[in-house]
């Protein structure tokens, strides 16, 4: 579905991705974890061509997206839903208008259809009560949920999450995790989640990729990831007090 082939990227001569290889399979949820500056967000931005690789190929459904321009780029991007770290809602539009925006701008749906879809999606993320509020008037968690609603309203094939739980309290974070998990199982989309919250990564993902200094250090399912002997991975897990028995110790009710 998404494939990075020896992708290199540098900013003003400073390398960020150095020979990056990654394959995200259709329908799975892949978490990208790593320390700050490991290249997680940059990887995500390459997938939607917000950034252009210095060299290498990025294939989406087998098509190299590097040379795309104009209409082809637009239709490639239509496959994606993207939840930004800051939610990136348009501040002068209400929650309802923000979620309706992609449909209004991109599709030829009637107002009634748009209204039905928007209300449905907002209901899914438990935001029905805040339709008419402006982003500035609601909390960070609600903004993230509204952003999530906007990302899924156009029914994308791939959902990209850039640090969905950062800046949120642990309880709200788990709510977001649950939402991501539910959407995944309901819609059957391919998801890529960038996070450094290991609890999120372990609970929602099918596979976890550890990024370190612009390369992929290890890609494995959560349980194997926990058992990894790689020093960098161990340091990363230990620094968040994640024990090897995480799945045995973590209370199930928090997840579901």
């Amino acid at each position: 579905m998404i494939e990075f082939r020896n992708v290199k990227k540098d900013f003003s001569g400073r390398p960020v991705l150095r020979g990056f290889n990654l394959h995200v399979r259709k329908g799975e949820t892949m978490c990208l974890v790593g320390t700050s500056g490991a290249g997680k967000s940059v990887t995500l931005k390459h997938m939607v061509r917000l950034l252009k690789a210095s060299s290498g190929e990025i294939l989406i459904d087998g098509e190299d997206i590097q040379p795309l321009e104009g209409k082809a780029l637009s239709s490639m991007r239509e496959k994606f839903g993207y939840l930004f770290q800051s939610a990136a809602l348009l501040q002068w539009l209400t929650v309802y208008e923000n979620v309706a925006l992609p449909l209004r701008e991109r599709t030829k749906l009637s107002d009634g259809e748009i209204d039905r879809k928007v209300r449905h999606v907002l209901d899914r993320v438990n935001m029905s009560h805040a339709l008419g509020k402006l982003p500035a008037d609601i909390s960070g968690g609600m903004q993230k949920r509204a952003g999530l609603a906007r990302a899924v309203v156009s029914e994308p094939d791939i959902l990209l999450y850039d640090e969905p739980t950062s800046g949120l309290d642990p309880v709200t974070s788990r709510t977001i995790d649950t939402l991501i998990h539910d959407l995944q199982s309901d819609l059957g989309v391919t998801s890529v989640v960038v996070t450094h919250d290991m609890i999120s990564a372990l609970t929602i993902s099918d596979r976890i990729a550890m990024l370190h200094q612009g390369t992929v250090l290890e890609v494995s399912p959560p349980r194997e990831f926990l058992a990894s002997q790689n020093e960098v991975v161990r340091d990363f897990l230990d620094s968040q007090c994640i024990s090897r028995n995480f799945f045995e110790e973590f209370p199930e009710r928090i997840l579901k």
Binding site: R77, Q85, A88, L90, Q91, L101, P102, E105, R106
Partner: peptide, 16 residues
Amino acid sequence: TMKVSEEISALEIMSI
């Protein structure tokens, strides 16, 4: 502000 808070990027990804 829209640029630094990624709202412009959000628009681009929405193909707007």
